[in-house]
Computed example of a mutant assay.
Amino acid sequence: MIEAAQRYNCDAQKLWKYNFGVMKKLVKKLPNACDIIDARLKIENKKKQKNLIEISKRKVRDEQFDEQWAKAVKTSAKKLYEENHRPIRVTKNQLLRASKLDIDGKKGIIWPTKERFPITHRATLECMESTWHFYARRILWTLLSLHDINTSDYVTIIFSGLEVHKSKEIIKYFLDIPRGSGASIEIINSLLLARGIKNDWAGPCPDREFYKAGRAYRLRTSRRGPIGGKAGEPNFSQ
């Protein structure tokens, strides 16, 4: 009956109107049942009001924190893109770790959900870099670092540590860049800026599809399974 009263937002007297039979049986077994129900409802209502107040306070705190966090993410992104060493991809996790803000007494990484931290969520998506932008930065760093300007593209790609097919496209795109002139993130950022390449770059051939490595890899021949499937999957077409 307490649960029913909470569900329909009524007191013990109204329960008599909507649940007469059950209330009659209950009072026979427990004469002060109405007092117990009203007392429990009073306690639960106080808890509910307290929770609403806490939720309201947390919302105000979150709004203030959201603006601070978004600003910290943007500051961290600027530092990450200007670090003068072999480029590492700027991801969501990197941005959040670099921002290092404390909320609710928790110093670990808290994911900025769109509902709770919309400004930070948007800033994180805007500041992280696409795969192609990362490839451009890493390949440029590798090309500028070469001791032998006649180093083959194959060896250059090995030095870069990146996937072969995308790397070939990036190297072709930057054929006019002098090799071995000395790696500098400032020079790389200037080159990207001059070509209008931003951190969300879709690459030199956005319409071309590339086979994905790792778990997302799909077979290109039927030797180990069906074409387009995962290795080891049964090939029912045979």
Rank of each mutant, 00 (worst) to 15 (best):
R224V: 04
S160C: 02
P226G: 03
I171V: 11
F20L: 05
R195H: 14
D35L: 11
D11I: 04
E67M: 07
N9D: 13
E83H: 10
P112H: 10
R40W: 07
G229L: 09
Y18S: 13
I227K: 14
E129W: 07
P87A: 06
R138M: 03
P87Y: 12
K50M: 12
G203T: 02
Q13K: 14
A5W: 12
N84G: 05
K168E: 01
I36D: 07
L30H: 15
I53W: 15
G214P: 02
M1P: 01
A4F: 06
I185F: 09
G203D: 04
A98Y: 08
G203M: 09
Q49N: 08
E67W: 00
K92G: 01
K57C: 07
G105F: 08
S130H: 03
W141S: 03
V90G: 06
G196H: 11
K25Q: 09
G105S: 02
T142I: 08
Q49Y: 01
H121C: 01
I177L: 14
V155C: 09
A216Y: 10
A98R: 07
L162D: 05
L219R: 11
L193C: 11
K92T: 04
N9C: 05
P118M: 03
F117D: 00
F134W: 15
G225L: 08
Q238P: 01
E82L: 13
K106G: 01
A202F: 08
I88A: 07
K168P: 00
W141L: 03
T131F: 11
L96D: 00
E67T: 05
N9P: 00
V60S: 13
S56C: 13
I227P: 00
T124G: 02
C205V: 10
K48D: 10
C10W: 04
